[in-house]
Nucleic acid binder design. Structure first.
Lengths: 326, 326
DNA sequence: CTTCACTGTTGAAGCGCTCTAATCATTGTG
DNA sequence: CACAATGATTAGAGCGCTTCAACAGTGAAG
């Protein structure tokens, strides 16, 4: 920076101001500084800048599982929003391990990021709240009520009722649900299913599974083995729906002619033509954007009371749902 | 840090040494420092540490496209290796934009990371080489020969010959290839296909596409429309294979009974039971690990001559390949 | 005893920036 | 023409750590 100052014939302080676009720098000096910096190939050292200014204009995003096609949409939204606010994004993954998840949060805190977005995740709420004391934090796609942090979630209950209403409107009466058990959002989806079925006076049929392909396979096999005349299956998420799809295929139950199938999350796999799974879009892009703007409120306007935002999902109808056979 | 020093009854310098596990700290002092740090909940400021020590023990990983299921495997490998070397990983995405890709690299340089791993990517080799002058860099899964950086790639030529040999061994003679055009690795896969076909005296049938689902759809339609008696299709990657699968399905050409289909990359989608696509595993975990250790060689042992490592792929046979119909 | 070689510890000088308060230059005002 | 007001610039302290050279303290060797 001294070199740039010398070359531009100004002081180091002015170089600092000019480079950050201060309006109290004369146009002539600004041009001289910019030219000198360019000629010297000067790039400011962020560590020094962060240290001196005590802020990084950086937001840390922790992706729970890189292999899960659900999360990239959130990252996209965050990326777009962050750019608008003049911040930058730094990412890390929890690599599906609560240990690594906490390590990622702590690393961001040590790096002095201005805020942290945590997606999904399995770390204990105690550990997360502890971290939230050290940095503005928002948890996305995991219902985690806390007075210390904000949350953004899709309305899983509503999304679930939309699925069931769709199936009922098609004429289905025997609809089974494969629940994700205790996984994030699963209880809400289960509740939506149960309430809607009850409201329509229909009998419920729930299999407890998980949000994985194999659990979908197992649950589908149990449903077939039960002998009950199910005409539609509402899987807790897309991945388990794919497991179901495979079982139905192997058992020669045509989808959707004999059995309709619905997933949840509207992941890229569901959108593949060859799969064409009816699913629920959680507005991930919007969730990501919302997370950033809520974080900025805390960072720049010092908000401290916690906010829980809910986003409205939409049903994406594809080829796996149709009226039941006569 | 001063607080910790005071509480432990030592100097700040010794706190620094103790916290970093120096062996020239008396056990008693070390315990005192650790206890004091713990009681005070002290966490060192990384910006300050990086600034003072001029190293970050951090490696930056740039994922070309978060939506592409190919990349997480590399990240996993890098994550594992980085831990073994006592470094930490920081990630960013190129969000499929050459602009953002360069921005991500520059951000890492500004943050003074010790090394950068670039996966895939579309930035110009000139821009990448320019960045490689500022920080040790390695490019993974993109053939980019340069004396300024290292590369790790899967042997696409070999993988491609393995696919063709597999199909020929099954009895296929009329094998079409859908090329990824100029995409990373595509020319090598094309060459492997052409050479192997030629070596066996078989006629080649190449459709130029891209590494996307829609391009697979278009190419498959062209193949069917050509009227040539193709019994096997080797798609350039899994995604385009899925497009092919859908077209074959719609045209009632049973896979693999009538037509065999092979992809490339062995992504998680190929592994889904319902898809079960025969594909080529690029040893992504190994590529990620290798990238880190090559980077460490540059960082810690000052290696400057460039290294190009090639990893041997393996064929993963699943349900989409079988002997051709009689 | 003195000397020497360690081991353990510390004071102080930076690392490369930002930011406050002070200074300098210029213009407008009475 | 002095003076205030405004705008542009700068000196220098400081951010929280590392690191180097210097310094005690200790026990072995002479």
């Amino acid at each position: 920076m001294d070199d740039v100052a010398r070359r531009a014939g100004v002081s180091r302080a002015l170089v600092s101001l000019a480079l950050r676009g201060s309006d109290k720098v004369a146009d002539s000096s600004r041009r001289a500084v910019l030219a000198a910096a360019d000629e010297l190939g000067y790039r400011p050292n962020l560590a020094a800048r962060n240290l001196a200014s005590k802020q990084t204009r950086t937001i840390g995003l922790i992706i729970n599982d890189l292999h899960n096609p659900y999360f990239p949409g959130i990252a996209d939204g965050a990326h777009d929003a962050v750019g608008r606010f003049g911040y930058r994004l730094l990412m890390n993954s929890a690599f599906l391990s609560p240990r690594d998840e906490i390590a990622a949060i702590e690393m961001f805190i040590d790096l002095q990021v201005d805020g942290v977005i945590l997606t999904g995740g399995m770390a204990s709420s105690k550990a997360i709240e502890h971290a939230a004391r050290a940095v503005p934090m928002i948890v996305v796609s995991r219902p985690l009520p806390s007075s210390l942090l904000d949350t953004v979630n899709n309305d899983d209950y509503l999304g679930s009722t939309m699925v069931v209403e769709h199936l009922i409107a098609l004429g289905h009466r025997h609809i089974a649900h494969i629940s994700g058990g205790p996984a994030a959002g699963a209880p809400q989806r289960l509740a939506g299913y149960e309430e809607t079925m009850r409201a329509h006076g229909l009998e419920r049929h729930v299999e407890i599974g998980a949000f994985t392909e194999v659990s979908g396979v197992a649950a589908a096999q149990r449903i077939l083995a039960s002998g009950r005349a199910v005409t539609a299956i509402f899987a807790g998420n897309d991945l388990s729906a794919l497991g179901v799809l495979d079982v139905l295929d192997a058992a020669s139950r045509a989808v959707p002619d004999v059995i309709s199938l619905v997933g949840y999350d509207n992941t890229s796999v569901a959108a593949l033509r060859h799969i064409g799974l009816t699913s629920v879009e959680q507005q991930r892009h919007e969730q990501g954007e919302l997370a950033v703007s809520l974080l900025i409120e805390r960072i720049e306007h010092g908000r401290t009371e916690s906010v829980q935002r809910v986003v409205t999902p939409t049903l994406v109808v594809r080829g796996t749902t149709a009226p039941p056979p006569p």
